[in-house]
Amino acid sequence: MDIKAYIALSLTLFTIGIIGVLVRRNAIIIFMCVELMLNAVNLLLVGFSKMHALSPIAKASLTYASDAQIFVFFIMVVAAAEVSVGLAIIVMMYRNVHTVDVNFLNRLKN
């Protein structure tokens, strides 16, 4: 499989995430679109890791071919921590303003 197929696929998923963030108003769905973008990046990193494993540089150099997958693992760790704090913020916001519509969140301005 060509690497271009993986780039196109993860770019499509990333763009769908961007469109979701721009279009939707619900804060929870915006948050889920961020998760989708993180997953698209993870898929691309794993694809590049397997591309590196096939190249002759991988055997000669000191870097491991599994470095990118370690990076994906840390992205998952950070995403889990981010989700717990972000959902706590959304729940607190719902308790205060009784909505999750991001249009009502412009009160910080004034």
Binding site: M1, D2, K4, K50, M51, L54, Q69, I70, F73
Partner: peptide
């Protein structure tokens, strides 16, 4: 922009041991 690139870089499918738990754990 991507489709303009002529060089073909293949991705290793279905084989290779760098995604297994052993090598990932050793590296980690």
């Amino acid at each position: 922009a991507i489709m303009k690139i002529d060089a073909q870089q293949l991705v290793q499918m279905k084989v290779g041991d760098e995604g297994l738990i052993k090598s990932l754990g050793m590296n980690l």
